[in-house]
């Protein structure tokens, strides 16, 4: 009996994921409606539930892919993986007007570079405050605060230890998760309510998953603008991390 269920679930993993995520969203919107009277976005609750489930999945299986490491729910890995995520992000650009993008063009570009440098400096500063004096360690942790991809890319390029790289990935994950949860909470106070500030937001935060989920839980109309700049961020980070930023740190240590 269990074998039968398992084989059906595994063979139809993506379809199972559609059903499970659908039920999760239905439940989240119900909670948002009944418990918070619509004050908290249903999608924000769904994302929080997803993260909780991911934590549970990670501790139960010891894997790195959250709930997707649970055999019966493997399809969630495909549904929320890079390919379909990027496909859905691009589709949100349908209906965006070119003029809106041009208006925020300069601020968008500035925000990407400022975002990478500021996150790096803050991360490196925290590493120094924790007593690190090795430029390779400081740079790797700083790069981790940029995103959890820039951290290991930079660390491997400059020869950081595995332990440092793990730390940098953890810092990047904290950032990404905090952006997912925190964005709807602070959106109003940082003026995140129009396409221009959404582009700046995407460029400053940079974590594609964080921005994608954070804006979805704030106002889905802002998603394409934030996602557009955020997707350049990791590339710029990988470019600056092992080069300019590492040299910068090396000047002081």
């Amino acid at each position: 009996m269990i074998d039968l269920i398992e084989s059906v679930f595994i063979r139809n993993s993506l379809v199972v994921a559609f059903a499970v995520i659908g039920v999760t969203l239905w439940f989240s919107y119900l909670l948002a409606d009944k418990l918070t009277a619509g004050r908290v976005h249903g999608s924000a609750i769904a994302i929080a539930l997803g993260l909780l489930a991911a934590y549970w999945g990670g501790t139960v299986t010891g894997g790195t892919k959250g709930v997707a490491d649970i055999t019966l729910l493997g399809g969630i890995g495909l549904m929320g993986g890079g390919m379909l995520r990027d496909f859905a992000i691009v589709s949100t650009a349908f209906g965006v007007r070119l003029s809106e993008l041009k208006k925020a063009g300069l601020a968008g570009v500035v925000s990407i570079i400022a975002g990478v440098v500021v996150s790096f400096v803050v991360g490196a500063g925290v590493a120094i405050a924790f007593g690190y004096t090795d430029p390779i360690a400081i740079t790797t942790i700083g790069a981790g605060a940029v995103t959890y991809i820039v951290g290991p890319v930079t660390g491997e390029a400059i020869g950081a230890s595995g332990e440092m790289i793990t730390l940098s990935v953890a810092a990047g994950l904290v950032k990404s998760i905090l952006v997912m949860i925190g964005t709807p909470l602070v959106a109003r106070s940082i003026g995140l309510d129009n396409p221009q500030s959404a582009m700046v937001f995407g460029g400053l935060m940079g974590t594609t998953s964080g921005v994608a989920a954070g804006l979805a839980a704030t106002d889905p109309k802002l998603v394409p603008y934030g996602a557009m700049t955020a997707t350049f961020y990791t590339g710029v980070g990988c470019l600056l991390g092992p080069s300019v930023l590492f040299f910068g740190v090396s000047l002081f240590f």
Binding site: S43, I47, G50, T64, A88, I141, T166, S168, P220
Partner: peptide, 24 residues
């Protein structure tokens, strides 16, 4: 998009983020 983002959230390495220690 939103359902896919929820699926994306469900496969983040939250356990690793939680066990990264104070520095991370």
């Amino acid at each position: 998009y939103i359902p896919i983002v929820v699926a994306m959230a469900a496969q983040q390495n939250v356990a690793a983020a939680a066990s990264g220690g104070l520095l991370a």
